[in-house]
């Protein structure tokens, strides 16, 4: 199982690097699917099959599909990729990358310093997760319900393809300005 973990870790990291370096959105999304699948494998090796399945269904399935839909609807393909190519230059990514590298170094030092034990793939039964979810976390579950509700309503409201002007004052202002011109 250890090998499974190391192999999938390497795959996840490499895939993620590819995600953030691609110019074309669709390519990036495909690598993102790979990354998610690799993380799902890590979950399996940690003895968490339930979340591994969820990772595949929800992340690799639903969320990625959502992204792809939007990319399709906006019709940003090779044109956006060309633009991205222009935008990404050494001076734009060098600074943030160095900063983030410092952060990573700090995190790693802190982790290695802390106590470390061996994790086996001793899986936690799904029954126990369910009990825990609907017993001590019941309020959190209900709050998540609210959150999803708000997400749906918000997305539906914001995404509505509506009139050009958000408020009639803005329209009147623009009309006045156009008259002046």
């Amino acid at each position: 199982m250890n090998y499974l973990f190391y192999i999938s870790s390497v795959v996840a990291i490499v895939a993620t690097i590819m995600v953030i370096t691609r110019y074309h959105p669709v390519h990036a999304l495909l690598y993102l699917v790979v990354s998610f699948l690799a993380v799902s494998m890590i979950f399996l090796s940690l003895g968490a099959p339930f979340v591994a399945i969820l990772e595949i269904i929800l992340y690799a399935g639903a969320i990625i599909v959502l992204f792809i839909f939007v990319v399709m609807m906006l019709n940003i393909g090779s044109e956006a990729a060309a633009q991205e190519k222009q935008w990404i230059k050494t001076q734009t990514w060098a600074g943030p990358t160095i900063l983030t590298a410092i952060l990573l170094a700090e995190l790693l030092v802190l982790m290695i310093r802390g106590d470390s034990t061996t994790i086996t793939d001793q899986s936690v039964p799904i029954k126990q997760i369910s009990f825990s979810l609907y017993k001590e976390y019941i309020i959190a579950v209900e709050l998540v319900g609210f959150l999803l509700m708000a997400g749906i309503v918000g997305a539906a409201h914001i995404g509505r393809h509506k009139k050009r002007y958000l408020h009639r004052f803005l329209r009147e202002k623009e009309e006045r300005e156009s008259v002046k011109l």
Binding site: P96, L99, T100, I102, L103, E106, L107, L110
Partner: peptide
Amino acid sequence: VIGVLIGIIFILALQL
């Protein structure tokens, strides 16, 4: 975000 990042780095550095 860079501001947030620098803040995190600072706090973690303190912890170190």
